[in-house]
Design a binder for these strands. Structure first.
Length: 402
RNA sequence: GCGGCUAUGGUGAAGUGGUUAUCACGGCAGUUUGUGGCACUGCAGUGGUGGGUUCAAUUCCCGCUAGCCGCC
């Protein structure tokens, strides 16, 4: 069995082990996002030093550029990007949703903007954001691309409805997602039965997950989860929740998923989230996460500060070990500060005194990083990114040991 | 001393006799959740100064001041 649940902590966090071709990973874990085969600004060796054990890349983007054929020719994605630990690829289902959203906002540029993405029973037709060329993805094609990339965990093509979708649209998206998952599995098994799947020396095969959709409809989510579990997959993802968060509450769904998804399989909450979201979700039984927030926020100047540090002066005599997990309520362990704000221009402190990331241990001041970011110096983006990723990965370490 | 030109947000530039004066960069702030790379959204100007013409002037005219160019 690729996954084994070792124990449930008092907090209800599931500590387990996932064994895949490029290594063994302990849950719960966070996957830094490296859409185009690179976690922006961070080299593989640095990722390892931060404690990353698996990263996420994107099928849609790598298919369009440089193309899975080229990557396969050069030895697969691991060899291509010089990362020898596990990789999970997102299927491109989210990009279909995201492109459709962007196209309707691009007023004027395209008269038939909504024609940018066409979903039919067989698959999805879309227009490349790079050169306008037309492409067609089927569930089978997306499996083939991911096998060519040689990744450890494959995600099937799904339909991710927007937060504004009608109940009918959500129902149809859910039905298609189940149908496509079934086709993906069939195709995956047919290809995986070959003796040397993508030429890997490892005897371990890659894993195929399924994605639960259904919007905020508890019944639909339950039916979708049951249908997918009936088909049987290596793990189960919960999709479509990291969307329109300001107007929608995902927690009822997350709680339900934690209760009904197969206990002996990893659960992946896609696209989530803030550190506080992740803490809460692990307590509801989620095992895997990915999110662009730490890396994107860093590039825009925002960095995480553990609140236990902000309270330092008050808690001095208590000799408290700083941890985002202290406090029973959970959440509210982190504060986000924007180094581009004028108040940090002359701030001599490091981002977070209790942080052991490369930026903080080297002693780079907030003032210096602020200067770098204002001057558009690459090092500024890198330092902020390293810091935020370290915060996330350290949080996961603490969650596993709690 | 004489002649000419120019004076528009922090900077550099547009533009117009009449509702909220445009753009870039900079500044200030906000947003960001399966990443269309440092993205996006806001905010800040009583239009050098004093008069005049006009129903109405940033826009037309005059004085003053400042800067630039040329001549003596």
């Amino acid at each position: 069995m690729p996954f084994s649940l070792i124990k449930k902590l008092e907090s209800a966090v599931r500590v387990g082990e996932l064994t895949i071709p490029h290594g063994l990973i302990r849950t719960p874990f966070f996957m830094p996002v490296g859409t185009a085969g690179s976690v922006k600004g961070v080299a593989p060796r640095e990722l390892k030093e931060l404690g990353a054990e698996i990263i996420l890349a994107n099928t849609y983007h790598l298919y369009l550029r440089p193309g899975e054929r080229l990557i396969k020719k050069l030895g697969g994605l691991h060899s291509f990007m010089r990362w020898d630990k596990p990789i999970l690829t997102d299927s491109g289902g989210y990009q279909v949703f995201s492109l459709a959203k962007n196209s309707s906002q691009a007023s004027g540029l395209r008269p038939q903007a909504d024609g940018l993405v066409q979903i039919c029973d067989d698959g999805v037709e879309f227009t490349s954001h790079l050169d306008g060329s037309k492409h067609f993805f089927t569930p089978e094609r997306v499996i083939d691309i991911q096998l060519d990339l040689g990744v450890d965990i494959l995600m099937p093509l799904d339909v991710c409805p927007s937060g504004k979708a009608t109940p009918e649209e959500i129902k149809r998206a859910t039905q298609l997602t189940i149908e496509w998952a079934k086709r993906a599995k069939k195709h995956f098994l047919a290809r995986a039965q070959g003796p040397r799947l993508n030429g890997q020396a490892s005897s371990l095969r890659p894993l195929l997950f399924a994605i639960v959709q259904g919007g905020l409809d508890l019944t639909l989510r339950q039916e979708c989860a049951a249908a997918l579990a009936e088909i049987g997959f290596d793990g189960y993802a919960v999709g479509g929740l990291a969307v329109d968060l300001e107007t929608r509450d995902m927690w009822d769904i997350v709680k339900l998923m934690g209760e009904i998804l197969p206990q002996d399989k990893p659960r992946y909450l896609m696209g989530v989230g803030t550190p506080d979201d992740i803490i809460q979700a692990t307590r509801l039984g989620m095992d895997m996460f990915d999110c662009v927030l730490p890396t994107r926020l860093a590039r825009h100047g925002s960095v995480y500060v553990c609140k236990s540090e902000m309270d330092d002066e008050r808690s001095n005599d208590q000799q408290q070990i700083p941890s985002p997990l202290r406090g029973e309520g959970g959440g509210e362990g982190y504060e986000l500060i924007n180094l581009l704000n004028s108040r940090y221009r002359e701030d001599p402190k490091v981002i977070d005194e209790n942080c052991a990331c490369p930026a903080c241990t080297a002693g780079f001041s907030r003032a210096y990083i602020s200067h770098l970011l204002r001057s558009n110096e690459i090092l500024g983006l890198r330092l902020a990114t390293l810091h935020n990723l370290w915060q996330y990965l350290n949080l996961m370490r603490e969650l596993r040991q709690e």
